[in-house]
Write a protein that binds this DNA or RNA. Structure first.
Lengths: 247, 247
DNA sequence: CGGTTGGCGTCAACTGTGTTGGCATAAGAG
DNA sequence: CTCTTATGCCAACACAGTTGACGCCAACCG
């Protein structure tokens, strides 16, 4: 049993598995994502992943300290993909909107994986890169540091929180998810107006809305609010500058 | 083994456990909350809960269809407690703010339980009661139905999403959580300005902010935005009424 | 008041989980 | 080519959720 996991860079001897595959951290993470998609968020087990790789389960412990460590690596991968998909335009609001949607979408591409990883804050390289990028966009746009940090905080936590929430429902089995979605048109739509007047009155609207993510709506609200704060900050700075000149 | 779980109301014959306790759904849920608090979000096991109740693990299957079913019951309990703690004042914005904070806080009272339950939308009675209450507040305040439903959606999903996110970090072991929190003052604060200028410049602000929940900030932003929409809707209605009269 | 019934708690066992120590072997260093 | 040792495999451990069979006793009926 490995006393310590050998870091990927230092790995010299690559040996074929009994079934012929050659292992690596990235291969394991990719395969884990596939297993998660096929078997659900609780379906990633050491034995199953071993079988999918054509390797003994215990071999995984040569690459990761445990299933928990593997989970964090999967999270890093999702965050990394979001950053790779992101392109900047120069408009802070457009860029942050795009990045938020990219992160949200990257996690939702692998809902079963997202469920496992989204609440794990790891402080790994690509996660830090994302934070640096967001703060860069805000400070570059002229947000005062205190405001930039507040907006950053609301932005990143909302994005991750909604990624988790939305991934949660997507990660259900097809059967369970359809049951959940139909609930709005069955259970909720059939509540008698006598006991639940407000749900009854809006049942049709609810059924149309509740099956989609509100994240874009919330994101735009946050960004518009930030834009308003930026305008105030600019006015404030301009007023100060005028006062400075006229002294 | 029970072919079917007997519903709590229909339960007639209550028999003492070998160790003297008398079981019930609520006793099991209360005990489960205690076990979760003491042993963490992964520490709720059938055997451990059985031991805490002074009963055989398999007895739980007389009350719940499985650990999954028990989990949903725990979620219902948390939502119910939030509603019980809630009092209305007549101001829609004050009331919704209070309800959001109540739900958020109720889940955070039992972070380990919240982590397990928050992404499970069950459609159980008290969950429906909460939905009816929120829609009632909004429609009572004069929101047009379409707007009310949009605000409701953003409100409830944000609240649950942040409850999940924040519970996630609270549910870590004390040791792990302190490591996480210190990361802002250690790892992030020590990133060289050469590679991470923006994080380096705001490290002090970050360390002060990131260890608290942004939910209240986001909630206020959402509610203020809703208030603006309500004013527009009122103006619109007033204009229509004037046009009606002058015809 | 006693007999009967069946709801409910218990026991033992099944499958599947993460994880570990020991071992064989082939890849790469010399 | 030989030698080291990293790396993959095997077997086993403790623990998980779950289930079927069993028997006791609370509650109902006469």
């Amino acid at each position: 049993m490995p006393k310590q996991v050998v870091p990927e860079q230092a790995r010299r001897r690559r040996r074929k598995t009994r079934q012929g595959s050659v292992l690596s951290e990235t291969l394991i993470v990719q395969t884990a994502l596939r297993v998660l998609r096929e078997h659900g968020s609780t379906g990633l087990t050491a034995r199953r992943l071993g079988a999918a790789l054509g390797a003994d389960p215990s071999t995984l412990y040569r690459y990761f300290a445990g299933m928990d460590d593997l989970t964090r690596a999967i999270g890093e991968e999702l965050m990394g993909r979001a950053l790779d998909d992101w392109t900047t335009t120069g408009s802070w609001q457009v860029d942050l909107r795009a990045l938020g949607l990219a992160i949200h979408s990257s996690y939702l591409q692998h809902p079963q994986a997202a469920v496992l990883t989204v609440s794990r804050v790891t402080g790994r390289p690509r996660e830090i890169a994302a934070d640096e990028a967001i703060l860069g966009v805000l400070r570059g746009a002229g947000f005062p540091d205190a405001t930039a940090v507040r907006v950053y905080h609301a932005f990143i936590d909302s994005t991750l929180a909604f990624a988790a929430l939305d991934a949660g429902s997507l990660a259900l089995t097809d059967e369970a998810r359809e049951t959940d979605e139909e609930m709005w048109s069955s259970t909720y739509a059939r509540l008698p107006a006598a006991t639940h007047p407000h749900i009854a009155a809006t049942a049709r609207l609810l059924a149309g809305r509740m099956t989609h993510s509100v994240y874009p709506v919330v994101l735009d609200t946050l960004l518009n609010d930030a834009a308003a704060q930026l305008r105030t900050a600019r006015r404030h700075r301009a007023a100060q500058a005028r006062a400075e000149r006229s002294r």
